[in-house]
Write a protein that binds this DNA or RNA. Structure first.
Lengths: 206, 206
DNA sequence: CTCCAATGTGAGGCTATCCTCACATAGCGA
DNA sequence: TCGCTATGTGAGGATAGCCTCACATTGGAG
């Protein structure tokens, strides 16, 4: 969990100690957001979990929103990286493989960064446009993938199709929190199949 | 917007005036939840919008959660009604018609009851089990529909399939807030097609 | 008309949370 | 070693929101 720029607002850390603290704070915030949701977690709680004082927290993150944005931008970078790899490999894959890779990419990423779900929900009401930017970029990547895998699709239908695939990915992630595991696996497998069917249909358009 | 039982907690209205007030309060709450989300709207705000005093509000709804539950159970009843009609008519429809009806039912319902989206998000953290119950019932209805429309599907795959269809409906509803309208319509049309493809595949299983 | 339960009212108590500030400590560079 | 900036600290001011309470008003039943 690297720290990078805390960007606007909070004083950015310059010494080694500061970077460590920022990382610890972000990690603590992430855990809290997962456990109780963004609105329900308090700054005091985050500081306590990071074993820092409330003042120290405010030194780097002047508001709770700043924390959310920092975490969100980290996650966005991570996901974008994976999407670029996905785009690069798309030409080598069959439709079934592509569907499997898409689902796995999103589901795995959510497993490794559970806070992203909670944060994505809040992204809309965030002061910055980070939420829009992230969704937009994701749609761009999916459009690229579709353009590669289904070259015959008309340009006008590319974005709607990308939006649908995006929603299907969101659905796959949502299924991740179902119990019991057997049912969840079965449902995710079905969803992947539905995606594959849709992709196949897209690839064979007049 | 009928009032029914305010169930536990708040004293139930008995006179005509009381019922009217409860209805007004619920309507006001609904509007506020849509505009600012559940967490962000305050009891004072709701009372003000209903042109009632804060004390009057608390007389019928002792907590904000009670309001959410009352609204949620109203919406659940409404949706259940539509689902029963859907189940009854399923035998008469082709796969394409079924897909169209499913999508339309959910999208229309959300248009007429915009608060349900905001409330569904909170349902999970509600003290009662209303959230679970609603999702569960919805899955039951979808299972029934699938069992009717695709009788050859093995019993074990019925619930996973219902979960997938449920997620696709959620996706259709989510697309409803996309802009511009042209793009939204196109995406929803694509999603409907994806659903139809999936249903077709379900109906023709070994 | 009278009575009383239902309903209406809003000031204010209470708590929780955000965030500031004045001061303490640490540790890098000279 | 010394000085200076980055970092650390937590009490407390300020605000906001939930909810109570003691009292006022209303309107149906007898």
């Amino acid at each position: 969990m690297s720290s990078q720029k805390t960007s606007q607002g909070g004083r950015a850390p310059s010494r080694r100690r500061g970077h460590e603290r920022v990382a610890t704070l972000l990690s603590a915030a992430s855990t809290c957001f997962v456990e109780k949701g963004f609105d329900a977690t308090t700054m005091t709680e985050i500081a306590a979990r990071a074993e820092a004082s409330i003042g120290s927290l405010y030194q780097f993150f002047p508001t709770k929103e700043a924390l959310a944005e920092a975490l969100l931008s980290e996650h966005a970078n991570g996901l974008n990286e994976r999407m670029e790899r996905l785009v690069a490999q798309t030409p080598d894959w069959t439709t079934e493989e592509l569907a499997a890779r898409l689902v796995r990419t999103f589901v795995d990423y959510r497993k490794q960064h559970p806070a992203m779900v909670a944060l994505t929900e809040v992204a809309g009401s965030l002061p910055s446009m980070l939420g829009r930017t992230i969704r937009q970029r994701m749609r761009d990547y999916l459009s690229q993938i579709l353009a590669i895998h289904a070259p015959r699709i008309p340009a006008g239908e590319l974005r709607p199709a990308a939006m649908v695939v995006q929603q299907l990915m969101k659905a796959a992630v949502a299924l991740e929190s179902e119990q019991p595991a057997t049912l969840r696996k079965a449902a995710q497998s079905q969803l992947q199949q539905a995606l594959a069917l849709y992709l196949t249909e897209l690839a064979s358009r007049p």
